[in-house]
Structures are given as structure tokens and as C-alpha cells.
Design a protein around this nucleic acid. Structure first.
Lengths: 227, 227
DNA sequence: AAGCGAGATCTTGCATACAAAGATACGCCG
DNA sequence: CGGCGTATCTTTGTATGCAAGATCTCGCTT
């Protein structure tokens, strides 16, 4: 047992390959590295001031999680995902969220319930003043709270993993204040079903909520293309 | 170089690191490498007639998929999973299966439906003659057919990944002919719901089916422990 | 005798070197 | 002038070497 030194910062603590992996994950999910971008090993090694070895190990890991594609002896590219597949991923996320909220409804503790209510109520202010960034952050917290209220850590991990993976392809931000309002209304409906202890209804409403968001995003993307 | 890689069984085509990864995956999910077993890099390298480099890359990938645990500078061990976590994984699989069968009910083509019926009907013979191995194989096919009938490739991949991961910790085979019969009866009920186009009912029945199987397995394990 | 610590040893993590498979460019032939 | 084969060159895949951290051993101290 060592003395309690926390991993204070992203400094140079920890494994180099892990730091490279985290950095690349951020850059891909953040959109800095667009889909299809070639990831040259030597180039990345130079950029991170390391050798190719840790870079390769990081890329291997990213390949497993699906963020990049490796073609044998033909290099690595940021995963280029078809629109169909993105829709499949959205649907999967919607289904998993629906599953989670059903379980959460039946299992959440009073403390977890009050926490969720608190989060939800606070979101009204964000909608009123149209603070998209803050609402995004709240939204993550809201859904995370539901994941954890399932009291199934494995399921929560899966849900977070899938959602994170989708984030990388959602750099097109939807910033319509009307959608913000509707999002909160849908949350409201979900909260009501939770309050009534009706997991099935909460589940259906969550699914609808997620698919609405996906549809809104898709319409937005298609509209942009026409412009 | 010429020092011959004995191309023992597997074709020596493809990347060495990929072959090592596949071999280790099989050994772990097959139970040859029990949970908690230490995986020494040099040792594995010797065994596969390779250097540590491809072994390391394979281990990194296995760590991402959760089959092994890496502690920095302290080596790699086959993932040691608590009973609670195994139950969580079972529940997650059950929920995902339920989700899949609901979608599949609404979306499967006539061809897919007839294929599923065919599979199911053929399973009667396996139950009658108590062929556990053949029933296991059928069971995989049956559930795979449902995954694919969702017409959501991403979801199907997720489902298969989670189920595969669970396989590694299911080396305790349940071989009760009564359970075999009940399993097929539950499939029958699911097929009926599918035939009626009632996805919700198919979903509930699938969830019950999976949880029954998990419970039977857990009871079996607990009983074994007492002996 | 038990606990502790310094050094030996072993294993991991990273760097560098080398080999082989695609990619590319250029010249030859049709 | 264009297609194709070959040589080169770039980039990946693997091996090996070296350094740092962790574990273990064994002697020393209390």
C-alpha cells in the first residue's frame, strides 16, 4: 500500500501509451481529427515526443473500441462511419437508455431519486437563458445519474462507452432553442413516469426522447448539406 | 528471416499480433486460462514463437475488451471478475437480448422468420436425444439469427461482444436435461410472440428466458460449492 | 524471533534497428 | 500516347536492447 498520491493532473504521470491513447481519444471524439484522417505512426510519435512503440499500442487499443480502423499493413485512419451506421448507433443508444431508465425506475434509492429531481429542476434555468453548453453538461449528468441508478455497473459502463463513441460523430451541434425546450419537456415526462414508478412508460418515453434528438440532428445535417 | 515458424495448425497468414490475440481470446473464453492467471509477456512470446512486441499489442487489445486486466508495471492477469459482476453481465445480456427480439419482431423479413422457425423446429430433436453440445450450438445460432434480424448491425455487434465476454466465465456447463426442455419451451413461447407480431411480449419472454438460464446456472454453481 | 531495509532480480515500458509488404514513380514496350 | 512492369521508397510489423519500477531475498537491527 502506498501513500495516497492521487493522479493529480494529466501531467507526465502514468504510462506514455495511455496518455497518447487518451489524447487521441479526445482529439477524435472532439472532432479535431476528422473521420478518415490518416494516422501516421512516425508522425504521431514525433508529435508526442515518443517512439512508435507506445503510439502503436495506443492505436491498437483505439481500434478495439472502434474509434479508428486498422487495415493490415495499410495504416490507421480515424473510423469513417456511414450515415446508416450512425443511425444504427443512435438507435442502439436510444434502446440502451430506455433499458436503463426502466431498471433505474424500479431500483433507484430515494437519494438517487432526489438527486435526479434536483438535476432536472435546475435545468429549467438553463433552458430559459438558452445556455446550450451548460444544458449539454447537465444532459450528460442527467443520463449518467440514470445509468448509475440501475445499480448495474457493467450496464452503466456499456452505456457510457457506446454514448462516448457516438459523441465523436456528433460534432455537428444542434443549437435550436426550441429543441432545448422540447428536450426538457421530454425529460419532464420521463421524470413523471419515474415518480409514478412506471418503468415501462419511462422506458418508452426515454426511447422517444432519444429518437427525437437523433431525428432533429439528422434533419439538421441534411438541411446543412443542401445549403 | 528464415528460422521457420512452424505453421502448426492455424494458417500463418495475417498479422502475428492478431493471431496471438485470437488465440488468447479463445483460451480465455474457453477456460484454458482461468481467471486470475498471470500472463507473462516473455513466456507467451516463447510459447507463440514470437517476440514480446506482438504479444504486448495483443494484450493491450484484450485489456480494452475487458478479458484481461493490466496494472501498470505489474503485469497482466486474466480478468478476475466478482460474482456480483457476473450477475450484472448476465442481466445486461438478458436486457440486450430482450431489446433485440423486440426490434427483430417488428423488422424481420419473411426469409429471416422462416429461417428462425426452421432452427427452432430442428432443436426439438436435439432436446429429445439430450445432445447438449448440439443444443449449445443451436442456441448460439438461434440468438445470432435474432440479432441480425434487428437489421441493426451495430447493435448485433454489441450483443455478440457482450455475450462472448460472458462466455469466458461460463465454463461451468449446465447439463440438466430438464433445463434443456424448459429452454426450448421458452423459445417456443418467444416464437409464438414473434409469430403474433407482439414484440413487447417477445421481449418480456426473452428477458425471462435469459434470467431463468442465469438463475439455473447460479443455483448450479452454488450447489457445486457446497459439495 | 520478528520487522525492516538495502540490494539483487525479474518484468514491464520504451526506444531503436531491421525486415517485409504496399505505394509510388519512372521507364520500357506496345 | 497509354498501359504495364519493375525498381525504389515509404510505412508498417517484428525483434532486440536498455532503463525504470516492482517484487523478492536475505541480512541486520531491535
Amino acid at each position: 500500500m502506498t501513500n495516497g498520491l492521487e493522479d493529480e493532473d494529466e501531467g507526465d504521470r502514468g504510462l506514455l501509451s495511455d496518455r497518447i491513447r487518451n489524447a487521441l481519444t479526445d482529439e477524435i471524439t472532439g472532432g479535431a481529427l476528422p473521420a478518415g484522417a490518416a494516422l501516421d505512426e512516425q508522425q504521431l510519435a514525433d508529435r508526442f515526443g515518443a517512439s512508435r512503440t507506445p503510439v502503436r499500442e495506443a492505436l491498437r487499443q483505439l481500434a478495439v473500441s472502434g474509434l479508428v480502423e486498422m487495415r493490415a499493413r495499410r495504416g490507421v485512419v480515424v473510423a469513417r462511419i456511414t450515415p446508416e451506421r450512425i443511425m444504427e448507433m443512435f438507435e442502439t443508444v436510444a434502446e440502451i437508455e430506455a433499458m436503463c431508465v426502466r431498471l433505474a425506475t424500479y431500483r433507484m434509492t430515494p437519494l438517487e431519486r432526489s438527486h435526479l429531481i434536483e438535476l432536472h429542476e435546475a435545468s429549467e434555468a438553463l433552458v430559459s437563458r438558452g445556455d446550450f453548453d451548460a444544458y449539454d453538461a447537465f444532459n450528460r449528468d442527467f443520463h449518467d445519474a440514470i445509468y448509475h441508478a440501475t445499480h448495474n455497473g457493467f450496464l452503466a459502463e456499456q452505456a457510457i462507452a457506446v454514448r462516448t463513441r457516438l459523441n465523436g460523430f456528433r460534432r455537428t451541434q444542434l443549437r435550436q432553442s426550441e429543441r432545448l425546450r422540447r428536450s426538457r419537456d421530454e425529460h419532464e415526462a420521463i421524470m413523471q413516469a419515474i415518480a409514478e414508478g412506471d418503468g415501462e412508460m419511462a422506458s418508452r418515453r426515454m426511447r422517444a426522447h432519444m429518437l427525437n434528438a437523433a431525428t432533429a440532428l439528422r434533419r439538421f445535417i441534411e438541411t446543412s448539406k443542401l445549403a
